[in-house]
Design a protein around this nucleic acid. Structure first.
Lengths: 164, 164
DNA sequence: GCTTACGATGTGCTCAAGCATATGAATTGT
DNA sequence: ACAATTCATATGCTTGAGCACATCGTAAGC
């Protein structure tokens, strides 16, 4: 049970994941700075790249941001032409959000720079582990319900070997 | 450099790692609450379990906490008999920090509960990927230098930021 | 037309974290 | 003995995040 004599001796996942995530984010900061985008702005660009969104509240929730604090970010991105934010003609309360070509260019540049660095980091892993590590990380990141105590969470899409 | 047009399209590591770490931490919270230890207190128990420490400042740095904010945590842990904090007879300025048997018991209980939950999470990964995922995670977490902009290339301050 | 509901936006409050400083006790070097 | 240093501790400042509420424009139902 509580004995850690067996093969289960390892740090808690969160104990490894959180500092690592923090360090990765800190490592990204210079790259983001160089392109003049904040972390939140980058999150917006990433999210809008995947699918245009119809409301800002939805965007805020999608990237885990506060809907009131995201406004300044959108103001800035729109002012710089990286995103478009036009009122929906069908419902002029909502702002249709989409990435502009310029925005996509910036997103691509930032992400390329980041991933080049990340590839170098990943290169320090054994080649055999590397792909599996990425698959595992993507699978866990895709999970919605990470409850450690409740009933076994049900499977969503993206588990198993389906991550290509 | 040309694009990696292959199947390397994946989210940034930090974009997966940070929310996942947050979710894991949130998932741990009920377990910690059930045992009456805060996240920082648990971090202290984990750290002291590995090696007793001679100064509180060293402990704070080891777990990435503020040395001034850790004091209340230590006060509480000591008051509950989970750690010992006696003045060093050789240098009465420093407090020798160590886990008590009781503290180890709590640590074991908490960690066991957490890891049982984590095992269930990890069980959702393909068995083949699982061990590799853990190896990779541990390897990356052990890295000191996660600079994305220029670790291999010597010198050149450039964008390299020191992460404390 | 009027009332109610909803989205975007602004504002203020609270909390936790990070940082700097000040103080007291104790050690070390001179 | 005295000065400088070190550790633990307390306190205050600042920032960013999260949250609640108020306002305004717009839409929909009555």
């Amino acid at each position: 049970m509580a004995q850690k004599a067996q093969g289960t001796a390892r740090p808690d996942l969160a104990a490894m994941m959180v500092p690592l995530g923090r360090a990765l984010m800190a490592a990204e900061q210079p790259i983001l700075d160089a392109h003049g985008v904040s972390m939140w702005a980058y999150a917006v660009l990433l999210r809008l790249d995947a699918t245009p969104l119809r409301t800002q509240a939805a965007l805020a929730e999608a990237i885990g941001a506060d809907k009131t604090r995201i406004i300044a970010v959108l103001d800035d991105l729109a002012a710089r032409g990286l995103i478009s934010r036009e009122p929906d003609p069908l419902d002029r309360r909502v702002r249709l959000l989409a990435l502009t070509p310029e925005g996509r260019r910036v997103r691509d540049a930032v992400q390329a720079a980041i991933q080049i660095g990340e590839e170098r980091l990943l290169g320090r892993l054994p080649a055999a582990d590397r792909a599996a590590f990425l698959r595992g990380l993507q699978a866990l990141a895709a999970l919605q319900d990470l409850s450690l105590t409740g009933p076994a969470s049900e499977a969503g899409p993206g588990l198993g070997a389906s991550v290509t």
